[in-house]
Structure formats: structure tokens, C-alpha cells
């Protein structure tokens, strides 16, 4: 039952390792975007400390968006996607495996690097757990919602731009609760409510997005 799931997961992780330059580009983009802010708004420590949660979250979101179009493009071009759609195993399983592999190779590195960049922006000590947990819960939602967008825009001319227009509005709630969690922790009200909402969002996305993604892939490959 799970052979397609593990086959796709193993293969996508292997491909990410063989093409690790792509993963590093995403990570470098994340680092550079965050580093641009002190140049833009000035190196005033108080200001940077205030905007740090929002900056880190927006940069993480853009880094995720940057690599989303790659999720299905190669498999679509070389015919692997057709073969996967003809699999006798449920398509939601291997779609979930693809999104999981995508998150492990783009979301997880961002989560790992974010605290380091937090230090750069002089984020307060107490906010780091909230930052990491909000990213761990939030970036998979971005990957799941983005996968639906990537499936819908597959094979279209200018698909990358269209993908951004489609999914960025959907990313807004994740951004609000993600950055909000860190700010709530800093203001002393506690991040629990925000994190619970993010967790609920993740559960919802996990339950619905793979189905939508499969339907979109079937339409796009027809």
C-alpha cells in the first residue's frame, strides 16, 4: 500500500541530494533577503528587534514560493507524472510524499537557519522557541497550499508568476499567525493560541490539500 509513498519520498530526497545546488540557492535566498533589511531600514537595534518576526516569516514564505514551481515541473516534462497518475496505488499518498520531500529539502533548512538569522536581527532570547515552533507548523502549510497552486499552473506559460499570484493570498493567514506567535510571545501574552491555530491549519491542509492537488494534476496533465 505504501510502496509508492516510500518510493517517491526516497527518490525525491535522492534527487534533492544530487541536485543540492538548488536547495542551497533557496537557503541563500532566505539568508540574503533577511540580510537586506538592516541595509534598507537602518541598523537601529530596537527597530530590527521589532520587525524581526515579520521579516523572518516573510523571507521564509518567499523562499518557499521560490522553489515551489520545481515541485512537479521536472516530473511533468519527463513523463514521470503520467506514470505516477497511472499507479495502482492512491494518488494522494504519493502526492503527500512529494510534498513531504519538498518540505524536508526546503522548509526544514529554513527552520534550522532562521534562529541564526534571528540573532542577526537581535531577536530576544525568549522568542526563539515560538519562532521555531511556528515555522515547523507553518512551513508545511505553505508547502501543501503551494503544491495545489503548482499543480494548477503546471505546464502553463509564465506559470511561475501565476503561481505566486495564486498562492500568496492563501499564505496570508499563515503569515499572520506565524509572525503573530513570535510577537505574542514577546509581548507577554504567550504564543499558545497562535500555535494552536497554526496546528489546526496544518491538520486541515494535510487533510484537504493532497486531494485538491491530485485533482489539479489530473486536469493539468490531460
Amino acid at each position: 500500500m505504501l510502496s509508492a509513498f516510500f518510493a517517491v519520498l526516497r527518490r525525491d530526497l535522492l534527487l534533492a541530494w544530487r541536485g543540492r545546488a538548488d536547495v542551497l540557492v533557496t537557503l541563500a535566498f532566505f539568508v540574503i533577503v533577511v540580510c537586506l533589511f538592516p541595509f534598507g531600514v537602518g541598523a537601529e537595534a530596537n527597530l530590527l528587534r521589532t520587525i524581526a518576526p515579520g521579516v523572518l516569516w516573510v523571507a521564509a514564505l518567499l523562499a518557499c514560493l521560490l522553489s515551489l514551481h520545481r515541485l512537479f515541473a521536472q516530473d511533468h516534462a519527463d513523463g514521470t507524472l503520467e506514470q505516477l497518475l497511472l499507479s495502482s496505488e492512491p494518488a494522494v499518498l504519493w502526492v503527500t510524499a512529494k510534498v513531504l520531500a519538498f518540505w524536508l529539502t526546503t522548509g526544514l533548512p529554513v527552520v534550522v537557519v532562521a534562529p541564526v538569522l534571528g540573532m542577526l536581527l537581535d531577536l530576544e532570547q525568549g522568542a526563539y522557541p515560538a519562532l521555531v515552533i511556528s515555522l515547523v507548523l507553518g512551513t508545511p502549510i505553505l508547502a501543501l497550499l503551494g503544491a495545489v497552486g503548482a499543480a494548477l499552473t503546471l505546464g502553463l506559460r509564465g506559470g511561475g508568476m501565476l503561481l505566486a499570484l495564486l498562492v500568496l493570498p492563501l499564505f496570508v493567514p499563515v503569515l499572520i499567525f506565524g509572525a503573530g506567535a513570535v510577537e505574542a510571545e514577546l509581548s507577554g501574552t504567550g504564543a499558545t493560541a497562535h500555535l494552536l491555530l497554526l496546528g489546526g491549519g496544518l491538520a486541515g491542509a494535510l487533510a484537504l490539500a493532497p486531494w485538491a492537488c491530485v485533482a489539479a494534476l489530473r486536469v493539468s496533465t490531460e
Binding site: R11, L15, R18, D75, A77, D78, T80, E82, Q83, L86
Partner: peptide, 16 residues
């Protein structure tokens, strides 16, 4: 379950 389809594209990934 009972179909084998080989399309025009050979479904090969260049890195594998």
C-alpha cells in the same frame, strides 16, 4: 492495476 502504459516520454530522470 492491470495496465502498463509507456508514453512518448521515457519517464527517466537524468540525475538517476
Amino acid at each position: 492495476r492491470e495496465l502498463l502504459y509507456l508514453g512518448h516520454a521515457p519517464a527517466l530522470n537524468d540525475l538517476l
